[in-house]
Design a binder for these strands. Sequence first.
DNA 1: TGCGACCGTAAAAGCGGTTTGACGATCCGG
DNA 2: CCGGATCGTCAAACCGCTTTTACGGTCGCA
Lengths: 350, 350
Amino acid sequence: MSRPTISDVARAAGVTKATVSHAYSGHRPISAATKARVFAAADALRWVPSSSARALAARRANAIGVVLRRDPAILASDTFFPAFIAGVEQTLAEREVALVLQVVGSRGAEERAYQAMAAGRADGVVVLDLHRADWRVPFLAGLGLPAVLLGAYEGETRLSCVRTDDAAPVRDLVAHLRERGHTRIAHVAGPLDYVHSYARARAYVRAVGSRALLREGDFTAGSGRALTADLLALRDRPTAILFANDTMAIAGTSYAQSRGLRVPEDLAVAGFDDDHLSAHLSPPLTSVSTDPARRGRVATARLLADVAGDDPRDVAVDCTALRLRASTDAPAPATARRTTPAPELEEEFR
Amino acid sequence: MSRPTISDVARAAGVTKATVSHAYSGHRPISAATKARVFAAADALRWVPSSSARALAARRANAIGVVLRRDPAILASDTFFPAFIAGVEQTLAEREVALVLQVVGSRGAEERAYQAMAAGRADGVVVLDLHRADWRVPFLAGLGLPAVLLGAYEGETRLSCVRTDDAAPVRDLVAHLRERGHTRIAHVAGPLDYVHSYARARAYVRAVGSRALLREGDFTAGSGRALTADLLALRDRPTAILFANDTMAIAGTSYAQSRGLRVPEDLAVAGFDDDHLSAHLSPPLTSVSTDPARRGRVATARLLADVAGDDPRDVAVDCTALRLRASTDAPAPATARRTTPAPELEEEFR
DNA sequence: TGCGACCGTAAAAGCGGTTTGACGATCCGG
DNA sequence: CCGGATCGTCAAACCGCTTTTACGGTCGCA
């Protein structure tokens, strides 16, 4: 009743295990007649090679890994992750390679997870949520585990890296707002130790120069709301806010509206990442689509090349596109009336 | 330079491999002194047991699988999936079990994926997107692979099943609308061969009886828009529409608004699944949260029990909650003016 | 003091594949 | 017609861990 093994197939075909193996792998020539017998036997027995045995013998798991250190709640509301995974799976599906996913809560668990990957769970990993000076870069190099970094890592590394130009869309967005007469343009960034948050924030600062009005959020709706309240309470409040993701932008919009500001007439708002619902909001939200699926595909292809023995390499993928929508489509207001934050938010900022 | 093995550890500790193994597994008592030496040696060598070797010898992968047959594009915009995975990982994180994910495009690939899971990639699987009379149920049973079904499967099965009451929230929603005076309540369902779509649709039909106005969509924005157009063009058009997910509801709302209807004054709209943005739309969308993360946790716990040798069992999880918001919060309109569909949609329905 | 029970470790046999070295058979050219 | 190259298969050695069997040493108890 238990699964047939390669030996059963070999016996049924009247050959040895080695012949069966070679018939499938092609590592040695096998005569057509023998091959046919082997395949027929395998078919009859419904033999499926054990992937654990194969992984052990061939020293390759036929799987790639992703380990994520995140609060599951954040994962659940993240628009990037599922799209990225979809892309990964797209290029994986063609090969017969699986994706091993591990979500962990602590640094220790993360190290163990990567070690487990290196110890046979996966042939390589793709590294997300890259930090500037990320400890995982030397760590993975030390493990000797092929890895591709997603994001513009700036330090020394012998790992592949899939880079995206986060700066260009930010510059374009600023230009777009300037054309409409905005001069007080604020930016609510993501955590600045993430390379992509940092890149966006830096591009913003360079674009607006001395007029920079920067706040560091954490990508959650709560921080979007709180920082918007903060900005709108300034004496010389911004007339436009660039948020580092759509979640914060939406929360910010809804706060502004609740305080009586019209978007975009009194306040222009733009997000980042182009959540699939953003086009359906009122007003539709200007955003930047970043094609996570495409990056998933590219990163995976690169990783598979690394695993196959290719030398690590940087690849740039040009995947950002401005989605200009109504939330930024109005001339800048002539005078910007200041807004006092809702009482409960005051406290939040003590 | 290559990874140390259990033999290296054994040699360093002056014992045999078996002792090292037992020291960790506890399958045999090992004296404290020996254990200490073993652990010290392992530590010094930075030994991490090979998971492929372990999987082969112990006939257990320490991983569970999910195989999904979906268009990656759908995956990317699905709100259920990431939240569910987050839940799965939550209960997995406590053990050192990994999740193996495989997204496939065809029935054949799906069978191969499940076979690979059974052949050592995973110790069990959780089955999503359950159909009525799903071929995977007998197939998995035949494979002898522990599995838990997510959804109210009605056929014969020796597999565990995590059930949710989809009917109650639909009934409540209908009651809620009736209280506001609605008598023409339509339902845009998901594909009716999915058990959850079917359950929702059936609950709807039972609740409204002979006044049922049912359309079958496919969970995409496109179908939400098209079916809304269809319904609003009826002579006696509905004054309220229940959609089987938020994506369709949002697309439907935006269509209705574009045709000059106010939501909720002229048309009440409710969704399902409670996308994290739904509360931020204008108007905020009434929906039903279904706590996918919780179901992920429960399903995983159940699967791990099955894998450990427990008998398959059904578990009911009560995880739905009505989120009543503005999109349904108005009295039903006295007279419902009929809307003609936008021209391009006419064609779509030939 | 003697014997069985028990404890802790060693030794070895797998788990189900892959890979390599060896070898008989066939083929070829000189 | 013979020697070497090539082809196709076999046999056996792993891969790194788990698990079972065996066994010497202790201990408890009569």
